[in-house]
Design a protein around this nucleic acid. Structure first.
Lengths: 168, 168
DNA sequence: TTGTTTGTTCAGTCCATGCTAAACAAACAA
DNA sequence: TTGTTTGTTTAGCATGGACTGAACAAACAA
């Protein structure tokens, strides 16, 4: 077996470092699963994972080729990620293709979106609470506790958003 | 049109108070939707909503009759809610049916469960991070930010859990 | 034992949704 | 104009999961 410098480059020099292409692939799949459990299509999660790992600007066609999925899927995935403010579409003069890149520090916005959803839920509980017969103190108390539960989460997420916005 | 005291009882005396049966039904449906968007079957959410509004202990058969769903659905719904520590099954000597009731102040546990899931996600990101080529500083930085995002949420949820546990 | 009540499990149906291929639209080149 | 490239939209397929009815199991009564 002869020495092969390319292998060293690909696999890394130090003891036991894994193939970076594998690590990258695994990470992209992981993020796909994370976002899937969040109600986001798996492919959108993989796109986000790809941008997280690579960092670079990518064209629409790149995404189709790299993730081996249809143009339609990339179209919806990029739209979802744009709506969620995780990536942005950037124009390039003289280029026909669309290009995308990560939004810098998208996390505060993510928390704000999450908090807004919970706040809406809390408002609906309050709406029910306001229509409860005041004599029904038991139900009123339980619904108030339930609403407070959402209220605490909203407050915490807002605080976390500010925290992450400050840290950059 | 004659005066009907039963109508007054059902609909309430004061100006414009709505039929409490309607309010209750609406609330139960709302909670069904809330929990559905959280990945829990809708029927399980309705069961939880019923317990929140009524407060009282209910038998398995009551739930089947009140929510007009199959025994199978109530069986799975109650199991899910038990697993999530939202209701508990209580035995009643001399009674063949199973009885259920709300767990008092389940919210700290709910937050802990949520935090545990996010912590697991964070750990997986860290696992990927630890396998990244140290020379790839860009990816390392982005993954570290991503992990921190989950870390902040976990910390906030833990704090919120303690908050709600103290308040009762 | 046999019969009755009650909850769980299983097979099957239905519905929502993610994905693809193909048609379409838009922008540009020649 | 016609042809080419690129992204979106639409129709259809396939997968997954919630729900139901029916069979089953367990506990109890007589």
């Amino acid at each position: 077996m002869n020495y092969d410098p390319r292998a060293e480059n690909l696999q890394g020099i130090s003891r036991g470092m894994r193939d970076q292409a594998e690590v990258r692939e695994e990470f992209i799949e992981k993020v796909g699963l994370f976002l899937q459990s969040d109600g986001v299509p798996r492919i959108a999660g993989r796109v986000f994972g790809l941008f997280l790992f690579d960092g670079e600007t990518r064209s629409f066609g790149d995404l189709v080729a790299e993730l081996q999925v249809s143009k339609a899927s990339i179209s919806t995935a990029t739209r979802i990620l744009e709506d969620r403010r995780l990536i942005k579409r950037v124009g390039r003069p003289g280029q026909r293709q669309d290009f995308f890149q990560l939004i810098e520090n998208p996390y505060p916005d993510m928390l704000k979106t999450l908090a807004a959803g919970l706040q809406k839920t809390r408002a609906e509980i309050d709406a029910s609470l306001s229509e409860i017969d005041p004599q029904n103190t038991g139900a009123a108390k339980r619904l108030a506790h339930y609403a407070r539960f959402y209220g605490v989460m909203v407050a915490m997420l807002d605080a976390a958003a500010k925290d992450l916005a400050a840290k950059g």
